[in-house]
Amino acid sequence: MPTIEYVKFSEVNPESFLPLLNKLKIREHLIQHELFDRDSAAAWMKSKVDVDASHGCKVRAINVDDQLIGWCGIQLEDAKYEIAIVIDDGSWGLGIKIFHEMMGWAKAMGHDEVYIHFLHTRPNYKFLQKMAKKTYESDILGNKFNTYLLAVN
C-alpha cells in the first residue's frame, strides 16, 4: 500500500504543482481557469495557506511515496464547510482513502456536516449517495455541480 503524506502548502515549491494544475485530465473536472505559471501557482498556493489558517479549515498537499499527487482540503465557502480533493488521475484509486481521512479531520474539528461539490463532468458516486443526508444539483460560478451533504459521524 502506498504511503500517503499530507504536507502544508508552505513546504511545497510552486513549480512542483504546475504539472498537476495544468494537466488536462485534471482540469476537465474543475471550473475552467487560465493555465498556471510559477507566479499564479504561488498566488494560488498562498490563497490555500490563508484558507488553512482559517478556523475549521485544513488544506494540504498530498504526497504518495514522496511524489506530489495533488491536494485536499476542508474549506469554508458560502458559510458551509466543503471537502475538496484534487489528485492526479494516476492516483484516483486513493481518493476514497483520502476522503475517509478528511472526514476524520472534519470530526476532529467538530463539524456536524460537510459538503462535496463535483463538477457535472464527474460521475455520480454511489457510496456518497448512500451516506449523504441530501444530494442535489447546484450552480457555482455559473457551473453545474452534483452536491452531496454529508453528516460527520
Rank of each mutant, 00 (worst) to 15 (best):
D65T: 01
D66I: 01
D66W: 10
D66K: 14
Q67Y: 10
Q67N: 14
Q67L: 12
Q67M: 13
Q67A: 11
L68S: 08
L68Q: 14
L68H: 11
L68C: 08
L68W: 13
L68K: 10
L68A: 09
I69H: 14
I69Q: 14
I69F: 11
I69Y: 13
G70F: 10
G70H: 11
G70Q: 07
W71Y: 14
C72I: 05
C72D: 06
C72L: 07
C72V: 12
G73I: 08
I74G: 03
I74W: 10
Q75C: 06
Q75F: 11
E77W: 15
E77M: 13
E77F: 15
E77K: 15
E77R: 15
D78F: 08
D78N: 13
D78P: 00
A79M: 09
A79W: 10
A79E: 11
A79C: 05
A79S: 15
K80C: 12
K80P: 01
K80G: 01
K80Y: 06
Y81A: 03
Y81W: 02
Y81L: 03
E82I: 08
I83D: 06
I83F: 07
I83M: 14
I83P: 00
I83R: 10
I83Q: 07
I83Y: 03
I83L: 15
A84L: 10
A84W: 05
A84H: 10
A84C: 07
A84E: 07
A84Q: 08
I85H: 00
I85F: 05
I85V: 11
I85W: 09
V86H: 10
V86P: 01
I87Q: 08
I87V: 14
I87T: 08
I87Y: 08
D88A: 09
D88N: 10
D88G: 04
D88S: 14
D88Q: 08
D89C: 11
D89E: 13
D89H: 14
D89A: 04
D89M: 14
D89V: 11
G90M: 00
G90P: 00
G90F: 01
S91T: 06
S91G: 02
S91N: 13
S91P: 03
W92H: 10
W92A: 04
W92T: 05
G93L: 08
G93F: 12
G93D: 11
G93V: 04
L94G: 07
L94D: 06
G95R: 13
G95E: 02
G95K: 05
G95Y: 10
G95T: 12
I96S: 12
I96Q: 13
K97C: 04
I98R: 05
I98M: 07
I98V: 12
I98S: 00
F99R: 06
H100S: 02
H100D: 03
E101S: 05
E101L: 03
E101P: 01
M102H: 11
M102D: 01
M102F: 15
M102C: 12
M103H: 04
M103S: 02
M103A: 05
M103D: 00
M103Q: 07
G104E: 09
G104C: 05
W105T: 00
W105I: 02
W105A: 00
A106R: 00
A106E: 00
A106N: 04
K107I: 06
A108C: 04
